[in-house]
Simulated assay, not measured.
Amino acid sequence: MSVATIPLASKPGFRTTDVEAVRAWVGASLSPHRFELLGRTRHIDVVHHRAGLSGSAFHYVDYGGDILETADLGDPVLVQIPLAGRTLIQSGPHAVIATPTMAAVTTGYTSMRYVAPNPRLVFRVERELLESRLALATGAPVRRPLRLDLAFDLTSPGGRTWRSLVDTVVADLSAGGPISQSPLASASLELAIIDSLLSVHTGAHSDLLHEQSSKAYPRALRRAMDLIEDHCAEPLTTADVAEAVGVSVRALQEAFQSHLDTTPMAYLRSARLRRVHAELVAGGEGVTVTDVALRWGITHAGRFAQDYRRTFGRSPSETLRQGR
């Protein structure tokens, strides 16, 4: 695969033949892992590029050789999409041969046997974000561990749609296009990727989604959610939102609590955090954490830092440095 056709080639990354450098880099950006060179492979030529969104990221990885990799992926969920070749992936008692038409959805302790060529896209998403979107879709808190089936058929109707959406976002990220340059647009597309993954790919949540699919949020709640998402940079209060959608403050609070297990102001803080995170990941000349936070209506620096680290697992300044 030529440099010109490598997805995300314009994004931060590295290329190396040093196995120890690979362990350090991939371990920091994806998960701690072990490598073993297999068969005829005596040298590797690893290429890795990354583009972060809000609570997720796309990676392009090519090991350039036959590799056995074992990793404890922890809580994050990885969707591995081979662009060529075949990979044997085993997670617990389950195994799948991943190909360009069969992705693998992995979490926890996983063994992966890559046979060259093995270029692939990897979509990494935080479990907390997946579960929050599942709770939003079902209108109820997630009370059991989220589990997605290991094999994800990309030739199924839902799989084709999801893969097409991924291609659109990755192409825009690769080119630095208008979607990736807009924090609001990129955040919205990230949620579309996550929501559609939950919708079209089977797992322990599928019955719950099916059971809840006929349920609709009250119109006022949906309008309130849309208003907060669209105007989260503004100094909104619960009373402002309630007045805008034509309900009482108490009714609005009860709707958020009963359907989303949160409050209007907590939902607003979450929306702001996602926008801030998207800008910090994008980085850029002259970008500062303070300016970005203020632009999205965040004025309490101490609480912001705590909420940010709790949500994304690192500080705002660490995110900004990584984006650069």
Rank of each mutant, 00 (worst) to 15 (best):
His277Arg: 15
Ser188Lys: 09
Leu191His: 14
Ala282Leu: 13
Val281Met: 09
Thr237Met: 01
Gly246His: 11
Val249Gly: 11
Arg274Asp: 12
His201Ser: 08
His201Asn: 06
Glu229Ser: 13
Gly284Val: 11
Ala244Arg: 12
Gly283Leu: 08
Val245Cys: 08
Glu285Gly: 05
Ala185Asn: 08
Ser214Arg: 01
Ile194Val: 15
Ala244Lys: 10
Phe256Lys: 02
Gly284Arg: 04
Glu211Asn: 06
Asp230Lys: 11
Ala220Cys: 00
Leu189Phe: 15
Ala192Asp: 14
Gln257Thr: 08
Ala204Val: 03
Arg250Phe: 11
Thr202Glu: 09
Gly283Met: 06
Ser182Ala: 11
Arg269Leu: 06
Ser199His: 08
Glu285Pro: 13
Leu273Val: 03
Ala233His: 10
Ala216Ser: 07
Glu254Val: 06
Met265Ile: 14
Leu268Gln: 05
Phe256Tyr: 13
Leu236Glu: 08
Gly246Ser: 13
Ala244Glu: 14
His231Val: 04
Pro218His: 03
Ala278Pro: 02
Ala220Gly: 00
Glu211Cys: 01
Glu234Tyr: 06
Val249His: 15
Val247Gly: 02
Ala266Cys: 00
Ala242Gln: 09
Met265Pro: 00
Ala233Pro: 01
Asp207His: 09
Ala204Lys: 04
Ala244Gly: 07
Arg222Glu: 10
Arg275Pro: 02
Glu229Trp: 07
Val249Trp: 13
Ala187Cys: 14
Glu285His: 15
Gly203Leu: 05
Ala192Asn: 11
